[in-house]
Amino acid sequence: MELQNTPTPYSNKCIKFSNRKPRILITNDDGILSPGIQAAAEAVADLGELLIIAPDRQQTAMGRSFPRQANQGIIKEVALTLNGKKRVAYSIIGSPAYAVAHGVLEMTKRKPDLCISGINYGENLGLLLTCSGTLGAAMEANSHRIPALAFSREAEVSQHLLSDYPKLSWEKEKSVVRFWTEKVLKEGMIKESSILNINIPREIQAKEDFRITRQASENYFEFIPPNKRDLDTPYELKSQRIIPENRLNKNSDIYVFAIENKISVTPLTWDFSI
């Protein structure tokens, strides 16, 4: 099936509102103090009632895990400045998926209408999706029947796990978040998807410069084999970016993102079976 930008095949499952604004849950896996979550919140602050809750610290690559840890579930108020105004957000000791679960079950009387996860430092493409805390948070929201948008931006591999967040410009990324949030609130999700995985290249020209893609069946990052070492000594595997251009489908997320340098928008569903 050929995938094209227009007309975009949106489902008729649009998000319906009466005389109220939508409630938008905003989360991430980089931590509540990440500039990425602030950028996402600023991009949509006037579109709905925001509930911002995220892990209290860096939680990259946690997937949709629910690890047990000391002081798990402690929630604290955090003051974020969004577009010059102070807003209440919440940090939680727990994984990205835990943050979403507590946000939905404990921090609001009205179930959110939409979840935004991100904006993540580092792209989430191909077989990496199951590792991603950004996607894990989106999946947890969707398990509560909440449609979700997962946003990731291109970043150096060395920046993916940092808690000392690199200073970057977020204006183009914010325009992408705004564009897709407005589109989904108005038109519904693409096809029969319940999650959109949206990856933003470093050098995009416009928010409209996107393609609807399929998830590549290839790794985008791979671990580097360690040199000979003392197995009793702690060691963290290093990763490197892999772009197997000759094996990539030209409609795949990796190809569109890495080769065509366009925003990749991948509609996802829960059905992993064939």
Rank of each mutant, 00 (worst) to 15 (best):
I52E: 03
S91G: 05
E42N: 13
G48F: 03
L80F: 02
S217T: 14
S158I: 12
A155N: 14
K238G: 05
G48R: 02
V157F: 13
R68L: 12
S34Q: 09
G136M: 02
Q58H: 06
S169L: 08
F221K: 00
S239E: 01
T81F: 07
D30V: 05
N142M: 15
A148V: 02
L129H: 13
R23G: 00
G188A: 14
I32C: 04
M139C: 10
Y165G: 07
D271S: 08
V256C: 15
A70G: 04
F151V: 05
G94K: 03
I146G: 04
L50I: 13
Q38V: 15
S158T: 06
G31K: 10
H160S: 09
I198G: 09
R68T: 13
I32E: 00
L185P: 05
E49W: 01
R178F: 13
S65Q: 14
E203T: 10
K111P: 04
W180C: 12
E42S: 14
L268D: 07
L82K: 06
Y165R: 08
K21F: 14
E208P: 01
N124M: 03
Q59P: 00
P55H: 01
E218T: 09
Q4S: 12
Y255F: 15
A99R: 02
R229W: 00
C131K: 14
A89R: 02
G103C: 06
I242C: 09
G84F: 06
A101N: 09
D164Y: 01
R229C: 05
I24L: 14
Q58N: 08
E208S: 01
